[in-house]
């Protein structure tokens, strides 16, 4: 059972109270984008075996969106932060690196 702490209300919510919203920090491609860019934004996903930054909604709680840094192989949770950010904050990067020294957060932007 996956347990994440909602950064908005501080509740330790379990999986059944949450709704997953997929990969985080995707950069929206608007009407000016090419077909390739729009396809990438809509469909191409990193789907990593390892550290994943992903959107969650505290659906049965405060209703707010947040982002979790989580390992898809071990289910280790490195931390959560508000969805109103475009890149992972420093304390999350440090928490991930404490466990995965090779992890590179700049790769997270590569899905643009």
């Amino acid at each position: 059972m996956l347990i994440l702490t909602c950064p908005h209300c501080g509740i330790q919510a379990e999986e059944t109270e949450l709704h997953n919203g997929g990969e985080a920090h995707l950069k929206r491609v608007g009407p000016d984008g090419s077909d390739e860019e729009f396809e990438g934004y809509m469909f191409a996903r990193r789907n990593p075996r390892g550290v994943h930054l992903e959107r969650w909604r505290h659906a049965y709680g405060c209703g707010k969106w947040f982002i979790a840094a989580r390992c898809t192989v071990t289910l280790q949770v490195f931390g959560t932060y508000a969805a109103q950010t475009t890149t992972p904050p420093d304390h999350i990067v440090q928490a991930v690196r404490a466990a995965r020294p090779d992890w590179n957060p700049t790769e997270e932007g590569a899905s643009e």
Binding site: H8, C9, G10, I11, G61, C62, G63, K64
Partner: peptide, 20 residues
């Protein structure tokens, strides 16, 4: 307070989310 419910006589005011 965050996730709190404050009661005053017959009325209570509950924190539902950061803006509710």
């Amino acid at each position: 307070d965050r996730t709190g419910i404050a009661t005053d006589g017959p009325r209570s005011l509950a924190w539902m989310s950061p803006d509710e």
